[in-house]
Computed example of a mutant assay.
Amino acid sequence: MSVEADGATDARGGDPTDAADAEELAVRVELLAAENRRLREAYRDAMRTRYRQTAIAFGAIGALALLGGAFFPGSRTVLYALGGTGVFAGVLTYFLTPERFIPARIGEAVYRTLADDVATIVGELELSNERVYVPRSGDARLFVPQFASYDVPADEDLDTAFVLAGRGEERGLALTPTGLPLAEFFEDTLDRSPGDAASLAPRLASALVDQFELVERAEADVDARRGRVSVGVAGPAYDPVDSFDNPIASLVAVAVARTLQRPISLSVVEPDDERYDALVVCSWEAAEDEAAGDGSPSNAEAGTNADAETDGAR
């Protein structure tokens, strides 16, 4: 009799104590999920409240300035201008409050997973360590050549992911760089095209910090005679900066390539300056007028290898 009972217990899945533990665990998981949802909602509410408090503060300052303009005729012009600005900023901030807030660590985790996958593909294909950003009409491509000594493929050959046309030096992997949409946003904010690396670099460093908030600090240096733009960055949101097609380095490379209209070889090296975490180096083969000290870029076809001191560092 007892043997049959034991058999029935086993058929139902084991000791009743285990079933009770599993049920208790399921209840705990459900409670934790509910608490997690509550915390996310509380976080969103807190962020909305902060935005709206900022909007109210702007509006209050603007209203006070407008009111002051009625009582202080001598400063009326300034006060009315300040009041109008405050009210406008308040209304804009209130109605543009984001509905969804995504922590930076989520974007970093998603990027790192994709970067690791692509890096694995590059490794299994035994491609070189070169990263070449090639500008095209309306976009740009990241070309990973098969060999360290390479030629940049024709634009139409970069349409496919696996570049197999042409000679061996033109074969490799072609991808859409992560920095392309960022570069397009950056270009949309410019009142006019930078035209050359010297005018582009400081704007780009400022955009990394203020516009995109990808880094805490950035400083650019241009050496047109050697064909190089270097950007030192500190406090990157996406770390490490030398990972495959990191958005920070990719934005710099795509923006330089599109401005100069020539292929750019990208390297990320450790900086000598301890204030920065990484040094993003964009290199190109300088034209004769740049090497002579003119400094203005040309549209000549660029070479594709980085300078010796950054060669192979990624």
Rank of each mutant, 00 (worst) to 15 (best):
D289M: 11
D272R: 12
D294F: 10
P271I: 06
I264H: 02
R275V: 02
C282A: 15
E290H: 11
R258N: 04
S298H: 02
R258H: 00
A255F: 05
D272A: 14
S283T: 15
S265F: 00
R262I: 02
Y276S: 03
A292P: 02
G295R: 10
P271E: 08
Y276W: 02
P263K: 01
L266W: 04
S283I: 04
P297R: 05
R262H: 08
V269P: 07
S283G: 13
S265G: 14
C282T: 11
E274R: 12
A286N: 10
S267T: 15
V269F: 09
S267I: 12
I264N: 00
V256D: 01
V268Y: 04
P271W: 09
E274Q: 12
S283M: 01
A286W: 06
V269Y: 06
V268E: 04
V280Y: 07
E285Q: 13
Q261Y: 12
V280L: 11
D289P: 02
L266P: 02
A255V: 05
A292I: 01
R258E: 14
D294G: 14
A255C: 05
G295M: 10
P297L: 05
T259Y: 00
R258G: 02
L266Y: 03
V269H: 05
R262M: 08
S267E: 14
E290F: 07
L279E: 13
E270G: 08
A255Q: 06
E274Y: 03
W284R: 05
A286Q: 09
G295F: 08
D294A: 15
V280R: 02
D273P: 11
S296Y: 12
G293F: 08
L266I: 12
D289A: 14
A255K: 05
